[in-house]
């Protein structure tokens, strides 16, 4: 997993509550055998004017010009700003995969759906909960300034605006540790690699046949 320390990037505002996982990545894209490549279909139904299917050449599809991610000023955005209950719906990990594949590193909202919130941490994406009033303020600042960027500092647990305003956010200490160090479950287990190797040595002495190659 990619480590998350400090991210400075363009903010894309999605002024909408209850954005569900089906909106983030529609179900016809879940048959894929990959966990990458979902970026072009992120928010597919909002982003394109036609109905998306796997295997289409997305560069040839008609764009919904008014959708935020299609507007020139938000190209290259890495911070997504949204309203409450972001990520509700199914437990599919495809939702954070799609956001990550598109290039987002952090999502700021007043609240998140539980499973989605957890899934983000497993996939190197930082979900940030800020007060309604602060989110409101950020929405107006983004609208007012083209190229508006925020700095997200995970170790300090702050979001810093271009005007040097600092908004603190909460994050579970264990999850913070994992994200700062780029440790997913596998990364954590691999920190115990020596114990695993020791175990293998001991077992090999007692039950050698278990270590024969298939």
């Amino acid at each position: 997993m990619k480590a998350f320390t400090v991210e400075q990037g363009i903010v894309a505002p999605m002024d909408r509550a209850n954005i569900d996982t089906d909106m983030i990545i529609p179900k016809q894209f879940l048959k894929s055998i990959k966990r990458t490549g979902f970026g072009p279909n992120l928010f597919d139904e909002l982003r394109y004017l036609d109905v998306g299917q796997p295997g289409m050449d997305n560069s040839k599809r008609p764009l919904n010009e008014s959708f935020v991610l299609n507007q020139p000023r938000y190209q290259g955005a890495s911070v997504l700003l949204a309203r409450e209950n972001f990520g509700c719906g199914s437990s599919r990990e495809h939702a954070p995969w799609a956001l990550d594949d598109y290039g987002f590193r952090a999502v700021i909202a007043p609240s998140f759906a539980d499973i989605f919130y957890n899934n983000c941490f497993k996939n190197g994406l930082l979900p940030i909960v800020l007060d309604d009033a602060i989110v409101d303020q950020l929405f107006s600042e983004v609208a007012a300034t083209e190229g508006y960027q925020l700095t997200v500092d995970l170790s300090e647990q702050v979001v810093v605006t271009p005007g040097e305003e600092r908004f603190a956010f909460e994050v579970d200490a264990f999850r913070k540790h994992c994200l700062l160090n780029g440790l997913d479950d596998i990364g954590l287990t691999l920190q115990e690699a020596d114990k695993i190797k020791n175990y293998e040595q001991q077992r090999k002495a007692v039950t050698p046949w278990l270590f024969a190659d298939v």
């Binding site: 055998i33 990959k34 966990r35 990458t36 024969a212 190659d213 298939v214």
Partner: peptide, 21 residues
């Protein structure tokens, strides 16, 4: 498929490939 894909993305090697069938 997504498990192998995950390994590739993270640049990880299987721990003991001969344990798999």
């Amino acid at each position: 498929p997504q498990a192998f894909e995950g390994l590739r993305i993270a640049g990880r090697k299987p721990w003991r490939i001969a344990a798999n069938l």
